[in-house]
Simulated scan of single mutants.
Amino acid sequence: MYNFLQEFSIPLITGVIYALIWANISPESYHNFVHNQIIPNFSLHFLVNDIFMVFFFAIATVEIIQSLLPGGDLYPLKRAINPIMATFGGVLGPTIVYLLLNHFFGSPDFIKGWGIPTATDIALAWLVAKLVFGPNHPAVSFLLLLAIADDGIGLLIIALFYPNPLSPVTPAWLLVTLAGMLIAFSLKKAKIKSYWPYILFGGALSWFGLYLSGIHSSLALVFIVPFLPHPKKEKAHLFEDASRDHSTLKQFEHDWKAFVDLGLLLFGLTNAGVEFSEINAVTWFVFIALLIGKTSGIFIMGWLSGLLGFPLPKGMNHKDLFVSGLVASIGLTVALFVAGVAFTDLALQGAAKMGALFSVLSAVISFSASKALGIKRTVISRK
């Protein structure tokens, strides 16, 4: 049952649907539920976005580390050049489209939303790719690599361009985060196998350092997870379970992934509650930048990479690349999160979130495009 819920992103989708219905039927009670303090100084929205999302981004970091190890999906570098170049296209494309749309039709108040359409929802993209191409088609692995690299860039974008809007950036507090990293490094040197000391001591200091510095505290474990002991070589592909790998890194992922997957219900519930009346130009800027900017950016850079001598994976052609770009334009989870930190104006925030929600339509467009282009679902051995 859990595998079914995880594979089809049921908790996240359920939270999103409930939030949309609640926010449009009874907006006042919805906003009270999300933003009123449930304990002194802490609302449900804060607990989800500043504490729960710490573990969401930590799991994303685990996937990035594992994919970069020898035997991982991004190793060696030459193998990863095409999806990495496509990833840069998938970041630059939507940024350019968003800024152009804002230049001609928008307002200076909208500029900070440029980072929202750079996101790809890795779980939904993986699901849609498997349904469109078939479970073992090389385009599925290509999309996973792209989404993982996209997560890495997304973490940098959040850290560098979206500090906490409610407090000024105070870089001196980052020394506390650095202290947390030094503790994690010392624990690794001491060959401490349990991940708990890394999280409780290094992670706590990292969280407070980021929170007090004005940088979003949800990134706290991004600076700690790389110190968790892990093997020198990776034995599993992305989303596969390496049952013989008992490293601290893998144990952390194994213990917390179910919590994160199921906890996305609360994330969807607290972040997707947007009233349809809040739709404005920002909504369409985000949606068009995702659909057109990300798709074209991925296609152009993937095609250019092939011309430079770094081809697409064997068994994947330019039609597959185009449809992969469409699939990657599903930006839901991270796009919702970035929308929440990009704008302090709740009306703009809601409009941007609606654009992120509309990006789910890319799944339907991907299916239609695959049929129009004659792409058939295939099963190709990875061996």
Score class of each variant (00 low, 15 high):
F8A: 05
V16Y: 10
I10C: 06
I39C: 11
P171M: 11
D245G: 03
V140E: 09
T283F: 12
G302V: 10
H237L: 15
T118D: 05
L291I: 14
V282P: 10
T344W: 07
V222W: 00
F56E: 04
H318Y: 14
G115F: 00
P135Y: 06
H254D: 12
A220C: 02
L304Q: 00
A172E: 04
A23L: 10
S186E: 15
F299D: 08
D241S: 11
I51D: 03
I288Q: 08
F337K: 13
F33P: 03
M1P: 11
F259M: 04
G214D: 09
L146G: 12
L265H: 08
I153G: 10
G297T: 00
S29K: 06
I96Y: 12
Y162C: 02
A289D: 08
W22G: 14
I51V: 15
F88E: 00
S141F: 07
S243T: 14
I96L: 10
W173G: 11
G263C: 01
E253M: 07
M301D: 05
F252Q: 02
K314L: 13
K383D: 04
F276M: 14
N102Q: 13
K130L: 02
L304E: 05
R382A: 09
L131R: 11
L187Y: 00
N82T: 00
Y162L: 07
G331I: 00
V91R: 07
V379R: 15
D261H: 14
G93S: 01
A125F: 00
A335Q: 10
L178S: 09
I380S: 05
A351C: 04
F57S: 03
S247G: 09
V274L: 08
G263I: 03
F133K: 02
V379Q: 11
G106N: 04
A159D: 10
K376T: 14
F133N: 01
F337P: 04
P94G: 11
